[in-house]
Amino acid sequence: MTSQSQFTRALTDPAQPVPAGLVSPRGSVDSKRFAVYRNNVHVSLVGALAARFPVTRQLVGEEFFAGMARLYVGQTKPKGPVLLHYGDSFPDFVAQFPPASGLPYLPDLARLEAAWTDAYNAADVDVLVPADLSTIGGDALAALDLTLAPSTRLVRSGFPVGSLWSAHQTTPVSIPALSGSECVLLTRPEADIRLTIIPPAAFAFLKAIGQGLPLGQASEAALTDFPDFDPGAALVGLAGLGAFAALTKEQADV
């Protein structure tokens, strides 16, 4: 009897022989036949990573990406049959992958791509529009706990990964200068994902709101490091990008 444990071990470890009890119609053990299953597992999971990390793949080339992804697949199988989030740890793997060390921006670029899929598949909610804030008085505004929209994602990098990603959305690709840090905001104001490079102060402000601070305290947190920060303008701008979930009924009635 060939158990599924035996089958799985042989499937995931090419050094293992074909499990006993699996034969060709000639009754013989046939390694090329079993190799079809091994290949299907690897190729399909490498394909899932290629679909989630297309710019990473473009940057390193198909062959390099396939080799790198194959090693990751060998170590990390999906936890379940929904592959939308498969590869959450792939950017960390890339960061630890010595042959990719010549491209120091690659792990953050992969992080941005992972965040992009998360934003793409996040729950649908009504977003806050700037006009929603116009009726709220100063004190109430400072005390307001805004919630980030489920699709809002923040990625900060020591490299211009937002510009690099954007450059790969058109052909021919013209690679931007690869120096300088960037704060990237992903939002889904309506149908599709919007990528915006935002100032570090706005990033700090959003991060503080995301951690649950009311608007007044989030402004102070940003102002500590960025004395020129204009919270009102940032709030209107970020709301315009769809970064926040709509107010609850209680909040709107204040």
């Binding site: 599924q4 444990s5 089958f7 799985t8 499937l11 995931t12 299953y37 299907n40 597992v41 399909s44 999971l45 899932a48 199988k77 999906p78 936890k79 379940g80 049959p81 592959l83």
Partner: peptide, 13 residues
């Protein structure tokens, strides 16, 4: 079958 202790294998076995 496609799932085992090791995870989801993404093939129809």
């Amino acid at each position: 079958w496609s799932s085992h202790d090791e995870g989801y294998l993404n093939d129809l076995l």
